[in-house]
Amino acid sequence: MSQSLFYLIAFLSIFFSLMVIFTKNPVHSVLYLIITFFTFTIHYILLNAQFLAIVNFIVYMGAIMVLFLFVLMLLNLNKDTEPAKSNLLKMAGVVAGMCLLVTLVGSVKALNVSNPVVLTNPGLGLVKNLGKVLFNEFLLPFEISSLLLLSAMVGAVLLAKKEA
């Protein structure tokens, strides 16, 4: 049952991510992206990673995508205001996209995904275990990443102040 659920959700993820790319309207695109993130949340729950699931839900769906939607609504993009891209730019986009595809396929192939992924420690995603692992084994990377976020925040504030 869990496996068929996985295939259903995986299909929905891919379907909605394709919809993100193929819809013309940027606001629709963002809405499809929100649904895509929601399917990711279900994937995390299937992996028994409850904390990651709910954080993905709050941060990506609840905060970042609201900001995306906010900016798009403010800009109110449509076909008339969007500048037409030159053919050279389009070609560059195609080449870059193909390069990314090749890299991704190569790395996935190197992973040997034909072996089914078995969770070595299925309880790891629960919030208690995750907290213990984060603050014992990975304390230094955790603190450094928080510093990184802080510096990004200070940088953003500085940029905003400069304009005013």
């Binding site: 769906m61 609840g62 905060a63 609201v66």
Partner: peptide
Amino acid sequence: NVGILYIFGVVSLGVYGIM
């Protein structure tokens, strides 16, 4: 076991209807 965060997530989702 992440009950509070669930509520927080639902709250943060609530704005989509209005938007």
